[in-house]
Amino acid sequence: MPEPDDQRLYFLLQRAAHRLRTTADRRCLAAAGVTTAQLGALFAVRDEPGITQQRLARALGLRESAVTALVGRLTAAGLVSKSAHPREHRAVVLELTVPGADALRAAQPEIDRFNAELREVLGDDGFAGAATAMHRLAHWEP
């Protein structure tokens, strides 16, 4: 396979992201009934119980309006509960429900399988290097 032209890096990143997202979404929906975006939110709520929607938006790198819709879907599905913030009258806090924790457990084997497949495609060094590069790009402030 020929080496991709450096000029096409952005296009290739977009194409790879789309392929990875659609494949992972299909598998996570089949395994746990949730998308990868929903899983990201569930992991964040699990890792920081009582997280606010504003904090969740920052953690996920999304606009608050997008997180409002995402949280609406998660609460409607019974995966997350909302309650009034104890000190900020306009804020709500989010907690993972038992079904939300069950969804995370159900998705974990598929996440592990998916990562193992990526390691096979990229090799261990390539996987680690790609993870480091993607982390840098995700936090890059031009």
Rank of each mutant, 00 (worst) to 15 (best):
R55Y: 06
L79R: 02
A37D: 08
C28A: 13
A30Y: 02
C28Q: 14
M1S: 11
T52K: 01
L29S: 08
D125T: 11
L122G: 01
Q53W: 00
V45D: 08
D102P: 06
H89S: 14
A91C: 08
Q14H: 14
A133C: 02
H85P: 09
P99N: 01
R21Y: 03
R87I: 08
A106Q: 06
A16P: 09
E117Y: 06
Q54A: 11
L12G: 00
T68H: 14
T36S: 13
R119T: 10
V34P: 00
Q54W: 12
G123R: 01
T35K: 00
A128Q: 11
G78I: 04
P142Q: 04
H135G: 03
E48Y: 02
M1C: 03
T35L: 01
T75M: 03
R73T: 01
G123T: 09
T35D: 02
R55Q: 11
R27G: 09
A32V: 04
P4F: 03
Q108T: 06
R87F: 08
A77C: 02
A106M: 07
V93L: 03
L62V: 03
A103W: 04
L29H: 10
N115V: 14
G126D: 03
Y10M: 12
D5H: 12
L56P: 05
L104Y: 07
H85C: 01
P142T: 09
E120K: 04
L118K: 07
V80D: 08
V92P: 03
L94S: 08
A41C: 03
H18R: 15
R19Y: 11
V93D: 01
R8V: 10
R27I: 05
T75L: 05
R26C: 02
T75D: 02
A17L: 14
V67G: 04
E120N: 09
E48T: 14
L13I: 12
T23P: 06
A91G: 05
E95T: 11
L12I: 09
G126T: 02
A138Q: 13
Q54M: 12
A30L: 07
S81G: 03
G50M: 05
V121A: 10
A66S: 12
I51C: 07
A77W: 06
V71E: 02
R73V: 02
G50L: 03
E141C: 11
Q38M: 15
V92W: 11
A101P: 02
V45C: 06
M1F: 09
L70H: 08
C28M: 15
H18L: 14
F11L: 14
A57I: 02
T97I: 05
L60R: 14
V80R: 06
L122I: 09
A103Q: 01
D112K: 13
I111K: 15
E3S: 14
T22V: 13
I111N: 06
H135W: 13
V34T: 05
P86N: 05
A116Q: 13
A37P: 00
T52E: 06
E3V: 15
N115L: 15
A32M: 07
R21F: 07
F114K: 09
E48F: 08
R73L: 05
L56I: 03
E88I: 11
L74Y: 03
A77G: 09
T68F: 13
V80K: 00
L9D: 06
A32Y: 04
F43T: 13
V80F: 06
D124G: 03
A133F: 14
R26L: 02
G40E: 04
S65G: 04
V121K: 07
V34I: 15
R46E: 07
A133V: 14
A24Q: 15
